[in-house]
Structures are given as C-alpha cells and as structure tokens.
C-alpha cells in the first residue's frame, strides 16, 4: 500500500482519458463528458498541473456544447442543456479565465427560468427538482456575477425550500421529506453559504452527524450504516469545512483511506481500494486530500469546489476552514 499521492501518475491518467475513443465505455458516458472535464481540470489545478490539458481545445469543446434552443450548455455537442452540465461549463470557463465567451444574459435567463414556485430549481424543462439543482443555479449565478438577480422573493423562496428539506438529524435531503445524505448536505450547506444564510444550519447536530460518517477503516460513508466511499471524503469534508469542523474526524485515517484507493499502476483513484478508478473519484479524492491539508496540494474552495485562489481573485470567497497545509517532508 502506498502512503503518498502519486501526482505524476494521476496527471498522466487524466491526460489519457480522451484516448479511449475506441472503447464502448467511453461513448456510453457522453452524457457526463463536460462534468468529466470539470473533474479532471479541477483535480489537475489542485495537484498544481493546470496546464496538463490543452486550454484552447478545452474551451472550444465547452463552446461546442452550447444548446442554442435552450440558451445553456449540454454535456456534449447535440445533447440537451441541463443545469448540471451548465454549471460544469461555467466552472471550466471560469477556471480557464474565459467567462467572456459566455452569453451571460441568455444563461442567466435559463437559470432563472428553472426556479419553481416552491423555490427549488428544476434541472431542465422537464421539471425534475432536487436541492442539487438549487446549488447548481446559485453557484452558476454567483460565478457569472448575477447573484443579484436572485435577490428578494426568489432568494427567500430558495432558502425556504432548503429549510424544508432539513431533517431532525441536522442533515438535508434531495426533496422535502427525503432522508439526509452527505451529497445533499454539501449542496444545501454550500448554497446557504453562497446566499449568506448559514444560520439556517443546526451546526452542532449536523457536525455530529457528519463526524459519525467516519468508519473504522478511516473512510467516510454518506448515510448511517452504509459503506465508505472516496467521493464522500469531499461531500462530508466540504460541509465540515464550511462549518469549521474538519477537526471532528480523524484526518490521518481518512488520508490513508483515500491514498489506499489509488491505482498505483495506471493512476487515478477509485471509490474504494481495489476498485476500478474513474475521474469522478480521482477528483473528489484529491479534493478531500486538499481539505485535509495534504502537503504539496493547492487549496480547494469547498463552497464552489474550485481552486481557492481563483475564487478569492473573483471576490467570491465565503468563510470556511480547511486543515493547515502540511509541509512536504
């Protein structure tokens, strides 16, 4: 078992992701392509290798995902626009300092058009609602400098809906009545952070629940009595960082767990040791390590899940606390 993050190997793994055009699996995941690029780019930034993927090509690809009919981005050319892919597109362009390529007015209209009467956002015109989509919209509006369009009644309704999704255990679910889930907790807490309404969170109760996600093997699960999974390192830790409670779990044990899920030959990180790696878990594993103060990594902003330096430059930084970055031995 390896005790360090194999950065060069992971960089190579991420660079190679687009070399699989003769794999069926590559084509079965086109609906996640733009999300995949966001995960790859962000983890590269955190590992200090932002330039490992060609910038112009990436921006061109993002622009080719524009859905003219909807006025937003799909995950791949000729796919339909959705909030999930639109947020990824905006995050990529922001990271590449290319937000000037976006038709801000149309995207803002698209985002605002998806807010429903109850305050929650739909993912697209077919109307599926989920607290994830509220976060996507709030994050995207904020990155575009358009959060002001949500002032007043729209903002209050969005917050009210998130409050209704809060459970007695301090957590949040995907919809009113739904069970608390670490992923949904991240989106709700981060959305409240962007909207400056963290007082809606019951901090001692939620931080208790989050700290109980750590299992004896050091990994974190997403709900009581479920298995550990590397991606929860981010969902749980990001919420804890926003609540200034990262110290409530054992950082060393979690670090070892994430590192043990690396593929030491091919690069990349899996959901748990010995499983197939993917760019999603690679990104969230690296993101978790950054919040844990792993040496040599760049800071990750847990609210936006983007490089912290960039969010600070954009003037969007909210209050959060990660563990202090340890020095390289």
């Amino acid at each position: 078992m390896t005790s360090e993050l194999l950065i060069p190997l992971h960089v190579k793994y991420i660079q190679s992701l687009d070399n699989h055009k003769d794999d069926l699996a590559y084509h079965l995941t086109t609906h996640l392509r733009i999300n995949g690029i966001y995960w790859g780019l962000t983890s590269l930034c955190i590992m200090g290798h932002q330039d490992a993927l060609p910038r112009e090509e990436m921006i061109d690809f993002v622009m080719s995902c524009w859905d003219e009919k909807a006025g937003a981005f799909g995950p791949h050319p000729d796919h339909d626009a959705h909030l999930l892919s639109t947020l990824s597109a905006i995050q990529i362009l922001a990271t590449q300092k290319a937000l000037d390529r976006i038709d801000v007015k149309r995207v803002t209209d698209f985002l605002l058009s998806l807010q429903t009467a109850s305050g929650v956002f739909a993912g697209d015109r077919f109307g599926e609602t989920d607290t994830r989509f509220t976060y996507c919209a709030v994050n995207a509006l904020s990155l575009l400098g358009q959060l002001g369009k949500l002032e007043g009644d729209r903002k209050e309704r969005a917050i009210e809906h998130i409050k209704q999704c809060r459970n007695f255990d301090g957590g949040f679910g995907s919809s009113v009545g739904a069970e608390s889930h670490a992923g949904q907790i991240f989106v709700c807490v981060a959305a409240l952070a962007i909207l400056d309404r963290l007082e809606e969170v019951d901090v001692p109760t939620l931080a208790w629940w989050l700290s109980e996600r750590q299992l004896p093997n050091g990994g974190l699960n997403g709900r009581p009595e479920k298995l550990e999974d590397v991606c929860y390192s981010f969902w749980v830790l990001s919420a804890m960082a926003i609540l200034d409670k990262v110290t409530w779990i054992d950082a060393e044990k979690l670090t070892s767990f994430i590192l043990s899920a690396q593929d030491t030959e091919g690069g990349g990180i899996a959901d748990r040791p010995g499983d197939m790696v993917d760019v999603f878990h690679t990104h969230f594993g690296v993101a978790g390590l950054s919040l844990l103060g792993y040496p040599g990594l760049e800071d990750l902003d847990p609210v936006y899940c983007m490089p912290a330096k960039l969010i600070e430059e954009m003037g969007l930084r909210k209050q959060w606390t990660a563990l202090e970055r340890r020095k390289l031995p």
Binding site: D263, D271, R272, G274, D275, M276, V277, D278, H281
Partner: peptide, 9 residues
C-alpha cells in the same frame, strides 16, 4: 464507477 473491481488485463 461504484463497486466495480479492478482487474489488471
């Protein structure tokens, strides 16, 4: 990918 074992081919 969740829960798919890694096989070295």
């Amino acid at each position: 990918m969740h829960g798919v074992r890694r096989a070295r081919q």
